[in-house]
């Protein structure tokens, strides 16, 4: 209690860089360009329903794929030797030390019509067999989802892994002792107990996926907009309109919060290690 002053830097930081921008977003969202109050920014968002829908859908797909890959990976990894676990963890982290944009660019050169994959398929004669010059990989929804999964998968693996690794070994033995075979041990004990990790993994993949703009721009070709692209355009692009941009951001935040709330309700009873 006496050390309260130590929190001052953080409180100042929060006030300047978290609270103030949020307040500004709310103000902008509810004002017109002349500064007068209006709800037009919000009520007009109906035109962008397809963008919201597409963003939610792609983020959802990316999250599900991340979970399907990430959970078994984290589970199997937790059973490996300590050295194996350390090395693997480092390999998972390693790409994250490379610039995000650079990583995504490299996917471009892999997926391009004249990119690595198409070249390889050409050399193997598969393209000729199919009678095409190339298989379109880049500028598809698939490429966007791939980019999301590639970039955010570590955020799924890590929380799940750290929950599983901390599970009390004797709880698993207790389940075996009570007659559970490995199937039952997993689905009745290990999976439910690792739910807090799953929930925070989902959060940490879903939230950045729904708001990303770089990935869709680079891998999606920018022809079908995602929320992130749309918002970016309002601030930096030609369609300069910070009021609409703020309204979009605000609504997106509310949607994300609702998603998170529903998910936490679903995982109720677990430790509140999730969300923030």
């Amino acid at each position: 209690m006496r050390k309260k002053f130590l929190s001052i830097p953080y409180v100042v930081w929060m006030a300047l860089f978290v609270v103030t921008p949020l307040v500004l977003i709310v103000i902008y969202a509810f004002t017109a360009s002349d500064g007068s109050f209006t709800v037009d920014n919000i009520s007009g968002l109906g035109t962008y329903a397809n963008v919201f829908g597409r963003s939610l859908w792609l983020a959802f797909i990316a999250t599900v794929i991340s979970l399907i890959i990430g959970y078994p990976f984290a589970y199997i990894l937790s059973k490996e030797s300590a050295a194996m676990q350390r090395i693997t963890m480092m390999l998972i982290m390693l790409p994250m030390w490379i610039n995000f944009i650079l990583r995504t660019y490299s996917w471009m050169s892999i997926l391009e019509n004249t990119g690595l994959i198409n070249q390889l398929l050409g050399k193997l004669g598969i393209l000729a067999a199919l009678g095409v010059d190339y298989i379109p990989l880049i500028n598809t929804d698939g490429a966007v989802v791939l980019g999301m999964v590639y970039n955010y998968l570590p955020f799924m693996i890590m929380p799940i892994y750290s929950v599983i690794i901390k599970l009390d070994r004797s709880v698993i033995e207790a389940a075996q002792d009570l007659g559970a075979n490995s199937f039952n041990v997993f689905f009745r004990v290990i999976f439910p107990l690792s739910l807090p990790g799953v929930l925070s993994g989902i959060t940490m993949v879903f939230v950045p996926s729904i708001s990303t703009f770089a990935i869709s721009k680079l891998l999606g070709g920018g022809k079908d907009l995602l929320l992130g692209d749309l918002i970016e355009m309002q601030f930096l692009g030609g369609a300069y309109n910070p009021h609409l941009g703020s309204a979009l951001s605000l609504v997106m935040m509310v949607i994300v919060m609702i998603c998170m709330y529903l998910m936490n309700r679903f995982g109720e009873g677990e430790e509140q290690a999730v969300l923030l």
Binding site: S170, V171, L193
Partner: peptide
């Protein structure tokens, strides 16, 4: 020893 109850 430490009960190992299922906390979920």
């Amino acid at each position: 020893q430490r009960y190992a109850l299922f906390t979920h």
